[in-house]
């Protein structure tokens, strides 16, 4: 089933949302036949859906609140510019891709390419706050350009691949080849990743003032701190295969 592409979903009445035409295979049917919608326009809209195939939920969302009780498919909140989108369960690939503002909270796990760049796009996530309480798949933050991603659980391989700028925080274990072809941006890790590309260099131990600001920001968004207190971190710089102005900060 895809795509679920209503504009300004959060400002619609539940009845209007239920009437949105969705594709299932080569036919179409109203959304209301696939899941329940409750809530009020301007308030919180709740969708009860447990399909991992319902793509593009909250695509282009600009304001309001949308809650998915259950799980979601790929491209959750794609191109979102404002508002709050919450998913109780897991989501598929490309959650928050092309997102430029607003907040997404995924209580479960996220698929590959969290906040990543869709086919042909030069930029992934462009702004906003993307928070995963579970784990993320591979290539979280691929081509991320701005904004903050927090993954409380683990992340797969190639986290921050081709990152352009922005901040990706992984509190659990990160996988192999973190930061591959990172041009700029910050990948913040609570512990050593499984591996880094050979084209990252150590720049030693540091205390960075900006991390305090980051912690405060995370706290204000109900997310855990990147590092407790004003801890000393180990900084890696790279990826020198390309621009080389990115950084990986690892709690020492």
């Amino acid at each position: 089933m895809s795509p679920f592409v209503p504009q300004r979903l959060a400002s619609m009445r539940p009845r209007q949302i239920a009437a949105i035409t969705l594709h299932q295979g080569n036919r179409t049917l109203p959304a209301g036949e696939l899941f329940d919608v409750t809530g009020s326009p301007g308030g919180r809209i709740v969708i009860q859906s447990d399909s991992e195939l319902l793509d593009n939920i909250g695509m282009g969302m600009a304001d309001g609140e949308l809650m998915v009780e259950g799980q979601a498919g790929g491209y959750l909140g794609r191109g979102m510019s404002g508002g709050f989108l919450q998913v109780a369960g897991a989501t598929g690939i490309f959650a928050g891709s092309a997102m430029s503002g607003g907040r997404i909270l995924i209580e479960g796990n996220a698929g590959d390419l969290l906040g990543g760049a869709a086919a042909g796009e030069r930029q992934g996530m462009r702004g906003g706050f993307l928070h995963v309480r579970g784990s993320a798949g591979d290539r979280a933050g691929d081509r991320q350009r701005r904004g903050i991603i927090v993954v409380e659980g683990n992340a797969g391989d190639y986290a921050a691949s081709r990152m352009v700028a922005g901040t990706l925080i992984i509190l659990g274990q990160a996988g192999h080849q973190c930061g591959l072809d990172m041009r700029r941006g910050s990948l913040i890790l609570n512990s050593k990743p499984k591996s880094l590309p050979a084209t990252f260099n150590v720049s030693g131990g540091h205390q960075l003032t900006f991390l305090t600001l980051l912690n405060q920001y995370l706290e204000s968004h109900s997310a855990p701190w990147a590092f407790p207190g004003n801890s000393r971190i180990r900084r890696w710089v790279g990826d020198l295969a390309c621009d080389g102005r990115g950084e990986i900060l690892i709690q020492a």
Binding site: G127, R146, G147, I148, G166, T167, S186, H206, Q207, L208, T209, F210, L213, L214, Y217, S220
Partner: peptide, 17 residues
Amino acid sequence: KQLGDQRYWRIPVMDGE
């Protein structure tokens, strides 16, 4: 670094940033 609607610059200097 952009945090919310505020942007900060981290400028490398000899005692850190």
